[in-house]
Simulated scan of single mutants.
Amino acid sequence: MHLLTIGAILGLFFVYLIRRPLQHLMVTAPRRSLEEAFVPAIQEDPFEQLTPREREVAELVQTGMKNLEISAKLNITETTLRVHLRRIYRKLGIQGRSNLRDFNAL
């Protein structure tokens, strides 16, 4: 009997703990109209999501420059350049330098 009481108290305590975060989500969640839900989103230029430096790196890669050349031209280390490239690949949804070279949005 005591185990059942303790279980019920713990259950109520758990509900109390998760209620506040769930209320916050429900109150702050943006509501969309039916029109917004069914109208397809306008296609944006994928390069708009890149920072100016990432755009600069992408343009230099597309011209065929190697990492060492790009890092010397931009006065950054090759490690920093590799970080920029990884972020570019992730944001554009591509894998590797050859795909970036072939990416024709620039």
Results as ranks from 00 to 15, higher is better:
F47C: 15
V83R: 07
L22H: 06
L85H: 04
I94M: 15
Y16P: 04
F47K: 05
L100Q: 01
R86F: 10
F14S: 15
S33M: 10
I42P: 14
V57C: 04
T79G: 14
R55S: 11
Q95N: 13
L81C: 13
E35A: 07
N104V: 02
R86T: 11
I6F: 11
V57Q: 02
N75V: 04
L100I: 04
V57L: 05
V61T: 00
P52Y: 06
L25S: 10
I42L: 14
Q23E: 05
P40I: 01
L68I: 00
L3K: 10
G64P: 03
P46G: 02
L50F: 01
E59A: 07
L106F: 10
E54W: 06
L12F: 01
E36M: 03
A29L: 11
D102T: 05
L12V: 01
R86D: 10
G96T: 09
L85V: 06
E36D: 08
R86Y: 14
I6A: 13
N67F: 04
V15Q: 05
R87T: 09
Q95R: 14
L4R: 09
E44C: 09
R19C: 11
N75P: 07
L22S: 10
E44N: 05
D102Q: 14
R101D: 06
R55W: 03
I42Q: 15
R87N: 14
P30K: 06
L100V: 03
L22T: 07
A72M: 12
L25F: 14
Q23G: 05
E69K: 06
R87F: 01
L25R: 12
R19G: 12
I42C: 13
L50Y: 02
N75W: 09
R32H: 13
E44H: 08
S98T: 04
A72S: 15
A72G: 13
P30W: 02
E54K: 06
V83I: 14
F14A: 12
L4D: 13
P46H: 05
I88F: 05
I9S: 08
A41D: 06
E48V: 03
I94K: 10
Q49V: 00
F38Q: 09
I42G: 13
R82F: 11
R97P: 05
